[in-house]
C-alpha cells in the first residue's frame, strides 16, 4: 500500500505497510476533514478560474486531494499544505491542457462542440470577466491569481508553478501588462 508510505516508514516502522489501519493512523479522517474544509473551496475557485470549467475543476480538485492522501506532507503547516495542493492542482490543469492539445492535434474529424467545450461553458455561465481572463495563457492566469488573489510571494509562486523566483518577476509583470491591456481594450 502506497498511501502514507512516508509516514509509515517514519512513524510506524513495525506496522505492516499494507494494512488499512495503518493508513488511518497516519492521518485520521478528522484531520483530513479539517484540511479539506479549509482548502477545498479556495482551491476549487483557483482551478475553475484557470481551467475555465467548473466540471473540470470538480474532477481536478478531487484528484488533487486523492493525491494528497496518497502522499501527504509531513508538515502540518497550513501554508505548506496549501502550496502543495496548489502545485498538484496546477500540474493537473497543465496536464489536462497538454492532453487536450495532443488530442486535438490528432483528431481529424473534431466537432465544433468538442473544440469549444471550455469556451461554451464559461460564456454560458459567466460574464465578460471570464472571457477577458481566458484571453490570457494558463500560466499567466495562474500567476495573476496566486499573486493578486492569494497574495503569494514570488518564491511561493515559483514553488507552485515550478519556475525560478527570478523569472516570476518578469512573467508576472508581462501577465499583468497583458491583462491591463485587455481591460483597456474592453472599455
Amino acid at each position: 500500500m502506497q498511501i502514507f508510505d512516508r509516514h509509515l516508514n517514519t512513524n510506524f516502522p513495525f506496522v505492516g505497510k499494507t494494512t488499512v489501519e495503518a493508513v488511518s493512523r497516519a492521518m485520521n479522517e478528522a484531520t483530513f476533514e479539517e484540511i479539506y474544509k479549509r482548502m477545498a473551496r479556495p482551491l476549487w475557485s483557483y482551478v475553475s478560474r484557470i481551467a475555465g470549467s467548473q466540471t473540470l475543476a470538480d474532477d481536478i480538485v478531487q484528484e488533487t486531494f486523492l493525491r494528497y492522501l496518497r502522499s501527504p506532507l509531513k508538515e502540518n503547516d497550513d501554508a505548506a499544505i496549501k502550496s502543495y495542493l496548489y502545485k498538484i492542482a496546477t500540474n493537473l490543469v497543465y496536464d489536462h491542457f497538454r492532453k487536450t492539445q495532443r488530442e486535438n492535434k490528432w483528431r481529424i474529424f473534431s466537432t465544433a462542440e468538442q473544440e469549444s467545450e471550455i469556451v461554451y461553458e464559461t460564456l454560458a455561465e459567466e460574464s465578460d470577466m471570464m472571457r477577458v481572463f481566458h484571453n490570457l495563457k494558463p500560466q499567466e492566469r495562474a500567476l495573476l491569481w496566486l499573486a493578486y488573489v492569494e497574495g503569494y510571494e514570488h518564491r511561493e509562486i515559483a514553488a507552485v508553478l515550478n519556475l525560478s523566483t527570478v523569472s516570476i518577476k518578469v512573467l508576472l509583470f508581462r501577465a499583468r501588462r497583458r491583462l491591463a491591456q485587455l481591460l483597456e481594450g474592453e472599455r
Partner: peptide, 18 residues
C-alpha cells in the same frame, strides 16, 4: 464573483482514497 458550487464531502474523498 466565483460561483458557489457544492463540492463533495471530505468523507467521500476519504472513502474514495481508501
Amino acid at each position: 464573483a466565483a460561483p458557489k458550487r457544492a463540492l463533495p464531502t471530505a468523507g467521500f474523498i476519504w472513502w474514495k482514497a481508501k
